[in-house]
Design a protein around this nucleic acid. Structure first.
Lengths: 205, 205, 205, 205
DNA sequence: CATGAATGAGCATTCATTCAT
DNA sequence: CATGAATGAATGCTCATTCAT
């Protein structure tokens, strides 16, 4: 009995509670990805589960709240990767590469439903995701550090961080469009461009 | 009658078909800018005109269609600028600079209501605008030209075009956030980064 | 044409607008009477018409607003009767009798749907109707006048007005329960009771 | 075990069946008084206890049923007072006075939450309470007795009973609005009015 | 063509009630 | 019995769209 308790410490109620929450989150992720946050309705989300409409409200108070939960979750999973990349980095270039690599790997992972990439052909809408904001803050921070330590020229850190986000976003999307996604190549491209411009970007062929 | 026509056409111009269309487009632009495409409803748009709700459907079949009309219009106004920039360009760098300058000037102009910049603090959502797509095509085309003519290294033109869009979009948004918008500086930053990377971007101070 | 305009000055649109408004008001009156204000839903009201759900909101913003419209309407129709009664009155007794008579006649008229009395067997719920409040104010006013002019003893005018409302309400309800309603008898009873107490009330048989 | 029972019953009294029932009834009384019967939901009631939502249904089948239980309870407590008043009465007047006094004292007591009067400003809605019905039956009965024994004139007993209820209700409400409630004065007013009309009601000042 | 009222599908949300634990 | 999550019907309300005038 104590063993059983150790094996199944959560009653079936607890289990379905967690499972339902996950089901809603998964459906919401899918729905937001497919129709965009604004177009998505709470009904679309629950329709994506096997739950009843009212059940949604046992877990979240509104569409906004699910979104935040998703965002928080993503940030919680992504931030540490970025942090680790920074700590392991031996140079600014190294750091930049790790960060882009982490980001591209992350979205590549996120953009799967049941392990298969989502078809990304619909009207291209991007909203600030938390991963995004994390990249922004990291890059900005990292760049200002690098500038302060003389490892990078004294350029406009805000504009550069913005440019990085833009590159990450658009190149990331393009990468996902090419199946299979080549995370390493995308990261190389981005880093090369940022560090040395056209001459720094990898040659074709 | 011809006299009346000469005297009245201004006073009644609000009622001509073309003027109605313009009124709807103007209202739509304003409304989309203020509440975002998704949040905006057809009702919001017609409320922004002096027309009756049904009249909207004499000109457009849906919100989507007005949006496309606006987009087409923007593209029609923007494309020639880009084309001109290309024709005047003496070098790839020159071309790039003209293109970014045109884009930043364009959005700076677009983001005004009655001549005053829109406060752009709401949740950051971007969708592919036609001027965007024009930049994409132009840059891609221009780059492939340049590569073919040996003026640029043989890099991934799709990724580069994406990166340009990303930079244009994000640096553009950042530029608008800084009032007053400095179009030249933003263009310099973007071009410097793309051509030479960090070392190419303008120094601060 | 000018004749036609005189005969049908309101277009068919106007006519249905007015008719729809009346239809909603009628349905609301019926529904409120049958299930009580709180229990009634907007949907119950529109279900009582041949209109679509959305149409309700072209006329009223909420259940509250229909209620107010009904109330205002009733007050507008009832107040003048009361006023007239007062002006015609030769004595306090005369005035009281006219007022009660007007009230009983009024509710007797109101409690008909398509000319037939409503079955009044459901859980007895009363809310302050505007007719009610009008009676209250009138009686209170009238009584204070009468006291000031020495026509009535100096008793508690608020309590008396309340008592009149209570009597009007309950005796009125009892009157409606007895089909056919005998307005004159009910008024005689109420006035007799108020003026002279048990001895003043009409004898049976 | 019997010891434990002797030691614990107070501490655990919250968990006995009868205590749960009382808890629900108490919460319901409070909630009905505060938000009115219609506005109150079963959820509001259970939220007012420490019980789980499902538990409600072990005791009552619906909101209506709790209401009836409360009403029955009130009637059970009120009826005997009325009966006693009747038995002690030396005359019809005496009886009437006792009855009104009992009623006004009763509602004055009922309209307290934790000993403090409820603010009674919300839209005035009255439903037939069981104490009300008890008054009705008593008065009607008493009156018919009195008439039969020649102590009162042969007037319409139904109308009179209705009038008494109306007076009790409205004067009672007015009394509660005047803080502190003066039960004796209200009873004097009501009885005076019923017996002798305006001349019988107590003078002011 | 312009008008604006009617329409009814759709949405967010609440709530009484059930039922597995 | 107590619990509280699940259910889905119901509600107030909005909105794109149609259509008689």
């Amino acid at each position: 009995m104590s063993e059983a308790a150790a094996i199944e410490p959560i009653g079936k109620r607890e289990r379905t509670k967690v499972a339902n929450r996950q089901a809603i989150l998964a459906a919401a992720r899918r729905v937001f990805a497919q129709m965009g946050y604004d177009a998505a309705s709470v009904r679309d989300i629950i329709r994506g589960t096997e739950l009843a409409s009212g059940t949604f409200y046992n877990y979240f108070r509104s569409k906004e709240e699910v979104f935040e939960a998703i965002a928080d979750d993503a940030a919680h999973r992504f931030k540490p990767l970025l942090r680790a990349a920074r700590e392991r980095a031996r140079s600014f270039e190294d750091y930049l590469r790790s960060a882009f690599h982490a980001y591209f790997a992350f979205i590549s992972e996120e953009n799967k439903i049941d392990g298969r990439p989502i078809d990304e052909r619909r009207p291209h809408v991007r909203s600030d995701t938390p991963e995004m904001m994390a990249v922004y803050e990291e890059v900005r921070q990292g760049l200002e550090d690098a500038i302060a330590r003389g490892l990078a020229p004294r350029i406009d850190a805000d504009y550069l961080a913005c440019a990085c986000i833009g590159i990450a976003q658009e190149v990331g999307a393009a990468m996902l469009r090419r199946a299979p996604a080549n995370v390493g190549a995308a990261a190389d491209f981005a880093v090369g461009l940022i560090l040395k411009g056209l001459d720094g970007a990898p040659r074709r062929g």
